[in-house]
Simulated assay, not measured.
Amino acid sequence: MQRKELTAKGKATRRRIVEGAAEVLREQGVGSATLEDVMARTGTSKSQLFHYFPDGKDELLLAVARFEAEQVLEDQQPYLGRIESWEDWARWRDVVITRYEAQGDTCPLGSLFLQVGRSTPGARAIVVELMQRWQEYLAAGIRAVRAAGGPRAEADVDTRAAALLAAIQGGVSILLSTGDSAHLRAALDQGIADLRRDLEPAGAATPR
């Protein structure tokens, strides 16, 4: 059955519930938080909650997962969306490290997927979309510096963007396991240094 399109007020209410649920899940953990906790935080009744999430907790968890995926990119803005120079790459790098150091050894998005399971309809699509959008931003940044790079500015942009994203994810995984951001820092620094080495014209100043 096709669901009715929400009004602007309905969309705002639904988003408020999702944001409130995200706060509860971050504070209490996905396994401990209940729908009652979400209702108390957001000031909604059970009937109102199920009006916006007819399939119950799993549907709400997927909505929160999508919200958390959006936050991954939003937390990197405006830097991720306007990488046009090596200075911009450095600013973006600092924002990424700060974000994940603040997050520490817990991952709200990862915890959500452990709860709902990647086989749940729509779950895998959220991760795929997140990675595609993130990679597209990185590819745009590579194209921007390549356009200004001159004769040496040759690179497989999509492959480079994919490799940098994979390096970041590896560094984040180690951070989640150890609480140490050293590998994330190394992955970003080496990835950007490799890009700069390959894209800058011969004779350009060596990065500090």
Results as ranks from 00 to 15, higher is better:
residue 114 L to A: 07
residue 121 P to N: 08
residue 120 T to N: 06
residue 124 R to E: 15
residue 124 R to Q: 14
residue 137 Y to R: 13
residue 133 R to D: 13
residue 128 V to W: 05
residue 142 I to P: 01
residue 138 L to S: 04
residue 137 Y to K: 10
residue 123 A to M: 12
residue 122 G to Y: 05
residue 117 G to K: 15
residue 129 E to M: 01
residue 132 Q to K: 12
residue 127 V to A: 06
residue 121 P to K: 06
residue 126 I to V: 15
residue 139 A to N: 04
residue 117 G to H: 14
residue 146 R to W: 03
residue 126 I to S: 08
residue 136 E to I: 12
residue 114 L to Q: 04
residue 121 P to H: 11
residue 126 I to C: 08
residue 146 R to K: 09
residue 129 E to V: 00
residue 134 W to Y: 15
residue 132 Q to G: 10
residue 125 A to I: 05
residue 124 R to H: 14
residue 143 R to H: 07
residue 122 G to W: 01
residue 136 E to Y: 13
residue 132 Q to P: 03
residue 121 P to W: 05
residue 130 L to M: 09
residue 136 E to C: 11
residue 146 R to L: 03
residue 118 R to L: 14
residue 114 L to R: 06
residue 126 I to K: 01
residue 127 V to Y: 04
residue 134 W to D: 12
residue 122 G to P: 02
residue 144 A to W: 10
residue 132 Q to V: 07
residue 138 L to R: 08
residue 142 I to T: 01
residue 137 Y to F: 15
residue 145 V to T: 07
residue 127 V to I: 08
residue 141 G to N: 03
residue 128 V to H: 07
residue 131 M to V: 06
residue 121 P to I: 03
residue 130 L to F: 11
residue 126 I to G: 02
residue 131 M to T: 12
residue 118 R to M: 12
residue 130 L to N: 06
residue 135 Q to I: 00
residue 136 E to D: 15
residue 138 L to D: 06
residue 144 A to D: 08
residue 136 E to G: 12
residue 141 G to Y: 02
residue 118 R to P: 03
residue 134 W to K: 15
residue 127 V to M: 07
residue 130 L to S: 08
residue 131 M to S: 10
residue 133 R to S: 13
residue 114 L to F: 01
residue 129 E to P: 00
residue 128 V to A: 14
residue 140 A to Y: 00
residue 119 S to V: 13
residue 145 V to R: 00
residue 127 V to G: 05
residue 119 S to R: 13
residue 121 P to R: 08
residue 119 S to W: 11
residue 140 A to M: 03
residue 116 V to P: 09
residue 131 M to D: 11
residue 141 G to H: 04
residue 121 P to C: 05
residue 143 R to A: 13
residue 117 G to E: 15
